[in-house]
Design a protein around this nucleic acid. Structure first.
Lengths: 324, 324
DNA sequence: TTGAAAGCGATACCAT
DNA sequence: ATGGTATCGCTTTCAA
């Protein structure tokens, strides 16, 4: 009789239907998930552990696209998606950590959830950060930033500003100081900054700390404030390198608001290639980092027990109107 | 010793630390979720069952905002978020259905997952659709559409077009026929259409079926195609009522592309009030449906065992540049 | 206070 | 083929 649930193919559809109906009347509602996964030692659930809060990640276009890619492949493989966050790493959560069969860590996690999960021995894929003993999926941030900056510098800008993301610890928007430039770090933003700097070096240009903004969170509101600061400088910059498309789009809006024409007066570049970037006016020159593909690759890596190599996805320069 | 995991307050922090470390060395990684939920009969997991595929929902700004609201409240209440979809309602899934303690159905589900879950007796909140024996959270679509249409009609348009969402069954973009107008339905889009029509009636205007577009999916691509059709009509419409902001934003882009000035030549209205609506140029006159609040309300309803009433959230007219 | 034992529900295995 | 039984790991209860 349990065949009716577990091996639908072994019974006639009609019989199966009758059994299901009758057992439902007896108060049986299908196999119990907890019991099954306890017994089988697996759950069919995959967790994505987000570095930021779940709410935040859901409104960030880059994270959304990543999740979209993950969800797509999980669906195809009959796996369930559990969203966790290392930011709100609480008591109850630490229990749920034992449910998933595998983990995708999106962004360097805070707290000790990563350590705990690693100890459990379950498969882990690290995305957008480096780690020792797990496979990871990364993109070449430095290279992407280098490409877009090189492209932009070919326009011979005289006054460059950078709208950067999470470059220092502060929760406030601020510009960098000379000593902020010394910091060595493998963080995404730092890699992008390095890429910008390498492109500048090649042309014997250099970035001035006071022309580099730190934006603590990748939101349109924050970005607009910083962009307004940069676009009301005197003299006006003629190139703004933005470390995300959200920031670059904010810069486009502010420029429009201030009647600064793009790309005539100022060139603007972004990073990420979010869907909005190709729809904006002007459309955005940026670096495509294939977020949803990244999600698919990470999921494939997690589910395929064969493949055992970390992946570095290519970044591609996407030239559009904002810097052409 | 199990106290170390379950009642951290009863032991000194130091002892707890030592116990955890030692047991970890023995190969113990914290309480087993499956065993715990099997025994306790609850999991601490809440499922959101999306009417569309998970991937699609993640890129739809309205669904994203809703999920954001849900995630926010679940986080505060130490609940885990499991994303399901009634669209890809498969075998494996039907097992996972028994895991969550409660369900939020976002949009009228397809398949029989709703029936199955209902039979399980677990709490259910229905969002954006009507159902008999569960609490629900809805908005007044008819009223919202009526308000925005009334506002727009006050501009005395002569030639009205409607860019509608999911008005008929077709997977293709098409315009309605006279008999399509007869359909009675409680679906969201039909309610919105009714609202538009009531506003028209009051002014002795009427909508012409051939000026009403059906768009099968709420994506920028689809919307742009339909918008281009509407904006290349001769004579050009001077009011475009759009059933979503995604559609309205597409209309703004197409208009810009065709050098049609808004709001001078054409007025455009949206629906939803997604974040992008206030950032667009021109900004969008629309109906705010408080998506993230909807998510919070639904979650509160699910978690608070007290409150036992369905909720209809207000819609608010938001007047911005595209129709002012 | 501490420990032992029953049982949650499904499955895998062994015996019929 | 079919039925019975031990077991997964935890919590709850009851006894010492």
């Amino acid at each position: 009789m349990s065949n009716a649930f577990n091996r639908p193919d072994q019974l006639s559809a009609k019989l199966r239907e009758r059994i299901l109906r009758e057992s439902a009347e007896l108060g049986y509602h299908g196999p119990n998930f907890a019991a099954r996964s306890l017994r089988k030692g697996e759950s069919g659930v995959v967790a994505v552990v987000l570095a930021d809060s779940i709410s935040y990640s859901l409104c960030d276009p880059v994270a959304s696209q990543f999740l979209q890619g993950v969800a797509e492949l999980l669906g195809e493989n009959q796996k369930q998606l559990l969203l966790l966050s290392s930011a709100q790493d609480e008591l109850q959560q630490s229990s749920a950590e034992s449910l998933p069969d595998g983990f995708i860590f999106y962004g360097a996690p805070s707290g000790d959830i990563f350590e705990r999960v690693k100890r459990s021995g379950k498969p882990i894929i690290a995305v957008d950060f480096e780690t020792e003993d797990s496979e990871s999926v990364n993109i070449n941030n430095e290279q992407g930033a280098y490409m877009v900056a090189s492209h932009a510098l070919a326009k011979k800008p005289l006054n460059i500003a950078v709208l950067g993301l999470r470059l220092v610890e502060s929760q406030r928007i601020c510009r960098l100081t000379a000593q902020d430039m010394q910091v060595e770090s493998k963080e995404i933003s730092r890699s992008r900054l390095k890429g910008y700097m390498r492109a500048c070096d090649e042309l014997n240009l250099s970035l001035i700390p006071s022309q580099i903004w730190h934006i603590p969170v990748n939101t349109p509101d924050m970005a607009e404030i910083a962009a307004r600061e940069a676009l009301t400088l005197n003299p006006l910059p003629d190139l703004i390198l933005c470390m995300s498309d959200v920031i670059a789009l904010a810069a486009l809006r502010v420029a429009n608001d201030l009647d600064i024409s793009i790309p005539e007066q100022i060139h603007v570049t972004g990073f990420d290639d979010i869907p909005e970037a190709q729809r904006s006016t002007p459309s955005l020159t940026t670096v495509c980092q294939q977020s949803s593909e990244k999600g698919r690759v990470a999921t494939r890596l997690l589910l395929d027990k064969e493949h055992k190599d970390s992946v570095v996805l290519d970044t591609r320069l996407v030239i559009r109107a904002s810097c052409d």
